[in-house]
């Protein structure tokens, strides 16, 4: 019990440390912008007064950090009234600032788009499992045959083909040539299929390989021999016994990959004009130099990613006593 609490405490501690680092990075990244955000937004013709107003409105007139360093003057202490602390106070009270462009709260803009991205990621996960499970079992139970080799080849192909190659190809075949789906947007319920397949392709390839090696490993266990000896059909042996044990590591990967899917969704959303968080980041954030929005999107995507990973890790530890006790 003591070990368990220590372990969980260490996990939570690390999680907090990582989140703190990410928020700090995101906060300070805005300082890297060449020139200043006000000129980037208002243009070269902006009067000094307009720039001063803009800076005051978004808190950009304050110093960036607790102190600054100047080659001539050395360290200069600014105290607690700085942008870094302001952003932190905002984050902790659920305020990610207002958009430089639209003056809307960044959090509202993000929450509007968040469900679409989650929906896409979950759909991709379902597609990936749907492809990988039969393919992986087929390859594992027919080790070193042409079936195995060709499914391994398909899997490697899936890993190597980038999203932005698969996406337009699928769009060309199924939307342009066959006309089964609309090429972009999310007007109809079935419009999620092409983006979900595109996003899930790489994951399905990884899963296929995992399920294959898992099945091969489990097939060599004693309980399989027992199951066969008592006269179970091969089908029952595989689906009732082998898969049950073989899927434990696969489940972990699924949790970890949900985070990867969230980040990968940025490209998929661009290909299919899917109105999610990725498109918000690219078009409204980076495209329009709305740095406050970029900060918010990067923060929300990475924190979701980190939380998904940590949760998976905790659940896995709890599920598998071998790890829990080690």
């Amino acid at each position: 019990m003591k070990y368990k609490i220590q372990n969980v405490a260490r996990q939570v501690g690390l999680l907090l440390l990582v989140v703190w680092t990410v928020v700090s990075l995101v906060t300070l990244l805005i300082e890297l912008v060449p020139g200043d955000p006000a000129t980037a937004i208002l243009g070269e013709q902006a009067t000094p007064e307009q720039i001063a107003n803009f800076n005051a409105k978004h808190g950009l007139d304050k110093p960036a950090f607790f102190f600054s360093y100047d080659g001539k003057k050395g360290f200069d202490w600014h105290g607690a009234d700085n942008r870094y602390l302001d952003y932190w106070k905002g984050v902790l009270t659920g305020d990610l600032g207002t958009s430089f462009r639209t003056d809307r709260p960044v959090l509202d803009m993000i929450l509007e788009r968040y469900p679409a991205t989650i929906k896409l990621a979950v759909a991709a996960l379902i597609v990936a499992v749907g492809i990988a499970l039969p393919l992986g079992v087929l390859a594992g139970t027919n080790k070193n045959t042409w079936l195995d080799n060709s499914s391994s080849f398909v899997a490697l192909l899936g890993i190597s083909l980038p999203t932005f190659v698969i996406g337009p190809f699928l769009m060309y075949v199924f939307a342009v040539k066959l006309g089964w789906f609309s090429p972009t947007g999310s007007a109809n319920p079935e419009d999620i299929i092409l983006p979900a397949v595109t996003l899930g392709a790489a994951l399905s390839a990884i899963l296929t390989r995992m399920i294959r090696s898992s099945v091969i490993e489990e097939l060599g266990e004693d309980y399989v021999r027992t199951a066969r000896a008592k006269g179970l059909s091969e089908r029952k042996v595989v689906y009732k016994h082998v898969l049950k044990n073989g899927l434990i590591p696969v489940v972990t990967i699924l949790g970890l990959q949900l985070g990867v899917l969230l980040a990968g969704a940025i490209i998929t959303e661009k290909i299919f004009s899917w109105q999610g968080l990725g498109l918000l980041l690219l078009d409204d954030g980076i495209g329009k130099r709305d740095y406050r929005l970029v900060q918010g999107c990067v923060l929300v995507i990475s924190v979701t990613y980190i939380l998904a990973n940590s949760l998976t890790d905790l659940v896995y530890r709890w599920l598998d006593p071998r790890i829990r006790l080690s």
């Binding site: 990244l29 890297l32 912008v33 980040a263 740095y291 990067v298 990475s302 990613y305």
Partner: peptide
């Protein structure tokens, strides 16, 4: 940190 996102963020700024 998702690698691609970090790269996107760095290049964005």
């Amino acid at each position: 940190f998702p690698g691609l996102l970090l790269a996107i963020a760095l290049v964005a700024f």
